[in-house]
Design a protein around this nucleic acid. Sequence first.
DNA 1: TCATTAACACGGG
DNA 2: CCCGTGTTAATGA
Length: 213
Amino acid sequence: MELNTKKELVLQAYGNFFEKALIEEIDSVAKLVEFQEGEVLIDIGQYIKSMPLVIRGAIKIMREDFDQEELLLYFIGKGDTCSMTMTCCLGDQKSEIRAVAENDGLVAMIPVGKMEEWLGKYPSWRVYVFESYNNRFNEMLATIDNIAFMNMDERIWKHLQEKSKIHRSNTVFQTHQEIANELNSSRVVISRLLKALEKQGKIRLNRNSIDLL
DNA sequence: TCATTAACACGGG
DNA sequence: CCCGTGTTAATGA
């Protein structure tokens, strides 16, 4: 697992984005942090002192409503960062979101001071931060569209495809209840709609898992 | 009409 | 037995 040096890992995940000098700086100041599936990396109301650059694995970003019901906003993966973190760091704000590890992975933590410093120092960093904001914003718009304009059956189908893509597997290991939580619905509806998808031949239902066909 | 809630039966581990 | 699943009846928006 740890055959690679920190620098190689950073280079492998971010070499396409950043110039050499910046990679060197990241190598010297970043702390590598491993995380495990299900781990809560950032919680709502928490202040954030450093910014995570995802090197391996995936993280899901959740929102919590008035009744502590959860709703999945979007995923971030290799080469991504959390835009919320940047807003928090720069403005000294509390986090509005919760970040939960979707699977095992690795992040490079950048101290908040450095990320500000680099904004003036490295064009590629500015571009990265800007594009990152853009990407997350677009994903949020897509999610809003899903909630506002798509039926629940379409949302489930999309959700399954997303999970499948992230885990690089055609089998999604999730119970109906867990899906209901992430989509902020009830299990009865999820069960019924999944059954409908199965009848359409799109999926096969098993206990604790769903196969995409 | 459609989602939610509660309740129940079934079955595999 | 416990939990995930499939279904139904009642209720509400």
